[in-house]
């Protein structure tokens, strides 16, 4: 369903807009390391990768159900 995919993409945009923003960022804005990575750096790239994964999943659904 095109409509369903559209709304999923819109939700993705909104959710990640919040995730990439204050005040959530202030939680990880610390001089600490997580698994050897700076917490902010770790968080940013993790959420970024997650977002790419989510977009890819949503887009791929279309291929399965043409």
């Amino acid at each position: 369903m095109a409509d369903e995919r559209s709304s999923k993409l819109l939700i993705t945009f909104v959710v990640f807009l919040v995730l990439f923003n204050y005040p959530l960022l202030s939680i990880v804005d610390q001089k600490t390391l997580i698994l050897g990575f700076p917490s902010l750096y770790f968080y940013m790239f993790l959420v970024w990768a997650l977002m790419i994964f989510v977009i890819a999943r949503i887009v791929r659904q279309r291929k399965k159900k043409p």
Partner: peptide, 21 residues
């Protein structure tokens, strides 16, 4: 500016889902 340089790439990434429209 520390990690703020990432904003330049996160902006386009955020917009990516909306490319569809």
């Amino acid at each position: 500016g520390g990690l703020s340089f990432l904003g330049v790439y996160l902006g386009p990434t955020l917009l990516a889902p909306l490319w569809f429209f």
